[in-house]
Design a protein around this nucleic acid. Structure first.
Length: 213
DNA sequence: ATTAGGATCTTCT
DNA sequence: GAAGATCCTAATG
């Protein structure tokens, strides 16, 4: 007898290297089920960050208060605050507790668009609601309160529906966006020709304000 | 479509 | 003290 399909992806899915989990997340549905309401998003762009060997990963220099969740169990949500105003969200991956993760970079809102629009009034078109990692986190209502949430437990406010990933031929890969080190590693994955994928931007060091001449 | 500059504050050096 | 896994607006082609 076939057993019923699981309601959400389980721990084993995330207990693999980030660069394998990342493309496998594309095309799947992420559910944000917070008190304010539910939003569903089809994942279209991700980036893999791999613990100790990856100089671009937040975990590269060891555990800190900020990145502690990355060092825990795979399948939890790692949310960080950046540029003094934005949140971005990752899913922690394995194998084991290797402090690896997948940054959720972009997606297409499939339901709850009204709530997403309320959270992101500056987006003029629907494809822009979650086109970029901070936009995505904002559209889903992710902030500090979501950091550390287990996406694999029953009744969790964050989960990934199994769905079906895209054909390998539809997946593109390239260098990660906005990273200053290891800029050559092609660990950004996206669904080719999808309008919700964010534009690639190379890292540019921010220019300091010049006090005088 | 592409570019440039500013916003804003946590985090780690 | 300096940089940052970014976004917005305005100006320009």
């Amino acid at each position: 007898m076939p057993r019923p399909a699981p309601a959400a992806l389980g721990r084993a899915f995330f207990d693999r290297p980030a660069e394998l989990v990342a493309p496998d997340l594309l095309g799947r549905t992420l559910v944000s089920d917070l008190p304010e309401g539910a939003v569903e998003l089809r994942i279209t762009e991700v980036e893999a960050y791999s613990g100790s060997a990856d100089p671009a990963a937040h975990s590269y220099r060891g555990m800190t208060a900020r990145n502690a969740v990355m060092f825990g169990e795979p399948g939890h949500v790692y949310v960080y605050f950046t540029y003094g105003m934005h949140f971005c969200a990752n899913l922690v991956t394995g194998p084991g507790t290797t402090a690896s993760g997948v940054l959720l970079r972009a997606g297409e809102i499939r339901s709850g668009e009204e709530l997403a629009r309320r959270r992101r009034p500056s987006s003029r078109s629907a494809v822009d609601l979650a086109r970029g990692p901070a936009r995505l986190a904002s559209a889903l209502g992710f902030d500090r309160a979501v950091n550390g949430v287990d996406a694999c437990s029953p009744g969790t406010p964050v989960r990934i529906l199994p769905g079906s990933p895209p054909e390998a031929a539809a997946v593109s890969a390239g260098p990660r966006t906005g990273v200053s080190s290891a800029a050559d590693i092609p660990w950004r994955f996206w669904i080719a020709d999808d309008p919700t994928v964010s534009p690639y931007r190379r890292h540019v060091p921010k220019k300091r304000r010049t006090p005088a001449g």
